[in-house]
Design a protein around this nucleic acid. Sequence first.
DNA 1: CGTTGCTTTGACCGAATGGTCAAATCAAGC
DNA 2: GCTTGATTTGACCATTCGGTCAAAGCAACG
Lengths: 208, 208
Amino acid sequence: MDKTATRTRIQTKNRQAILDAGLAVFSQQGFRGATLDQIAKAAGLSRPNLLYYFPSKEAIHVVLLAGLLDTWLDPLRALDAGGNPVDEVLAYVRRKLELSRDFPRESRLFANEILQGAPRIGAALSGELKELVDEKAAVIRGWAAAGQIAEVDPYHLIFSIWAMTQHYADFDVQVHAVLGPERADPYPSAGAYLDTLFRSLLTPRNVT
Amino acid sequence: MDKTATRTRIQTKNRQAILDAGLAVFSQQGFRGATLDQIAKAAGLSRPNLLYYFPSKEAIHVVLLAGLLDTWLDPLRALDAGGNPVDEVLAYVRRKLELSRDFPRESRLFANEILQGAPRIGAALSGELKELVDEKAAVIRGWAAAGQIAEVDPYHLIFSIWAMTQHYADFDVQVHAVLGPERADPYPSAGAYLDTLFRSLLTPRNVT
DNA sequence: CGTTGCTTTGACCGAATGGTCAAATCAAGC
DNA sequence: GCTTGATTTGACCATTCGGTCAAAGCAACG
């Protein structure tokens, strides 16, 4: 019963083109701001043709959001309670930053959804997202209790990692406006900065 | 020639109601996603009545964005080259966080504008925003060179302050979903966390 | 080459949207 | 209470939007 089993070559190609176009448009305009014409044009199809592949605008959006949270949380899932605490967190930061660099549209799609009050993924936020964060927060708290990292609020630590890594994707225009054309790619220096930032936060000091 | 000089009491009241309603709707739906009916309803006026006070949807949006950047940058302007470096930065973080707590809709309005590619304030970003940041970045670089704070990229430092403080306004729904109902107000703990974070980053270590 | 099923399109529809306008209502000073 | 100007409204309009549908085009296979 694989949904992709009975797909023509044309079908897979056009579905992909539509999802790609939808991602581009939704991530910039939000759901309400996006129009089917914009998406159809970006996909190189006529509007009725687009609606031959997806039953509605909503359907495209749903498919896009569906896979999103999962991919987005993968780096956090990989945080290993058995590894070296500081390295684990820094590796998480690095993976998250790479995600922003490689999939900025996905990041902006997510940002739009949250800004609008998460009408379509609110349940997943207080469900699987909260569960995962609770679990990993406990791990971090454990490390702190064992003196392997400094005492920090694990929730705010995670929030700050999200905020800073996604900032480079979501506020891309602002970052480039401020840095100017000469510093076109902010990611190398951002990576170094974030590394320093979280290392200095987590590295245990001379305990009093 | 003060624009407010010839305003009736009713005018000032209704204009304010409209701007307030517009802020609420635009900050959640973005410009394209917002409708005049939503704004009119939120302002307690009929749509034609609303258009008696503002000539168009765009006009409301423009007025809202106009004052925004200025208010938003005030805390950074207050960063004093003559003060104690670490204290100055930490005070900046605190002021910025207060802005997020007290004016979350303004923060989201700004976020929406940037997400959409800053079509209306792009010029101000590479203009006055860049100028101000360049100036303050130079101040921070000076502090680092003098050994008063640790060596950090001043631009990324500023980005990280923006990202983390605004995160609590823009991603409010997500923050609350993750923290759950028992930790309703994240701001006190966020303030403490950010204080620790940036203090540990900036405090000069035993220089090698 | 003809049939069958997949794909594409032009024409169309109802609803929503931004905006206009003339007429009605209201408030305030005389 | 009457007049004048500010305010409010209902009716209306053109455009855009999401979506439908029947018919046309096309590819593949016998």
